[in-house]
């Protein structure tokens, strides 16, 4: 069995389940080997470590992220495709004491919701946006996404993504880093490095807790179902191919708080 499958399998074991996960909704509804489960595991651990479960308001988009509508033992709202960022922005502005998280896919964040991401980042909204990048529109059956790699075949680019016609894959964190103030936190993590991803998510949430600024984490995530790959090639794609284009690391880290 590959490493990828093991991660998912252990995710389902009781002792390893983050406290903030809702037990009644496990095992979760994602496909076997799906990256969403891992990203939400890292998020669950980050919420546990920061002790904020009772203050979290979690918003999920329409995309496979919608399957997380009852994932956490936290108040959760499912928004419309692409609209989670403004819904969460509204909640945060109305209740600044809540820790407000918007969770979405690359289609939700970089295509239909791109204007919301750009404007929330520009306004330095004190929210945390987490985006799972799986290089396709998974929920609708594997169409081209803003993040589809050059030459990659999908249902709507059956002959491979042609960057002459469709441009380069979106570099989300790079874009957000360029338009945010210095007290924003921006990073790209990957399900292939869960410890690092958890740390990034903790920093992103801490930045909101400190009331400093916008925080954004993209996570490289697998979609074996629509990639039509077995466990090994799925893992290779996440670990080797994706980071060639999507560089993993922190892009913007606020200076330490004074005093």
């Amino acid at each position: 069995m590959s490493e990828c499958m093991e991660v998912t399998a252990t995710t389902l074991l009781e002792p390893k389940m983050p406290r903030s996960w809702r037990r009644a909704s496990k095992p979760h509804k994602f496909c076997p080997g799906c990256g969403h489960g891992d990203v939400l595991k890292a998020l669950g651990t980050a919420i546990d470590d920061l002790g904020i479960q009772d203050r979290v308001v979690f918003g999920c988009d329409i995309g496979c992220s919608l399957l997380a509508w009852d994932f956490f033992e936290c108040d959760t709202v499912q928004a419309h495709h692409g609209r989670t960022t403004p819904v969460i922005t509204g909640i945060k502005r109305a209740r600044p004491d809540r820790i407000c998280i918007a969770y979405m896919g690359d289609g939700g964040g970089y295509a239909i919701g791109a204007q919301h991401l750009v404007n929330a980042a520009t306004r330095n909204e004190r929210i945390t946006v987490i985006l799972a990048n799986n290089t396709n529109y998974a929920m609708t059956g594997g169409q081209m996404a803003p993040t589809t790699l050059p030459g990659q075949k999908t249902e709507t680019c059956p002959y491979g993504r042609d960057i002459e016609a469709m441009g380069n894959p979106t570099l989300g964190p790079e874009m957000v880093a360029a338009i945010t103030k210095e007290n924003a936190y921006v990073a790209r993590g990957t399900m292939a490095n869960m410890r690092q991803l958890t740390t990034m998510l903790k920093k992103a949430l801490q930045n909101q807790i400190d009331g400093r600024g916008f925080s954004f984490v993209e996570a490289l995530a697998s979609c074996p179902t629509n990639w039509r790959m077995n466990a090994k090639s799925t893992w290779d794609f996440v670990e080797k191919e994706m980071p060639n284009y999507f560089k993993v690391g922190e892009l913007k880290v606020p200076a330490p708080k004074e005093g």
């Binding site: 496909c31 399957l67 998974a138 179902t225 629509n226």
Partner: peptide
């Protein structure tokens, strides 16, 4: 005439 059932979940 043939129609499958389908929903939001890709699998399961």
């Amino acid at each position: 005439l043939y129609i499958p059932n389908f929903g939001v979940e890709q699998r399961g």
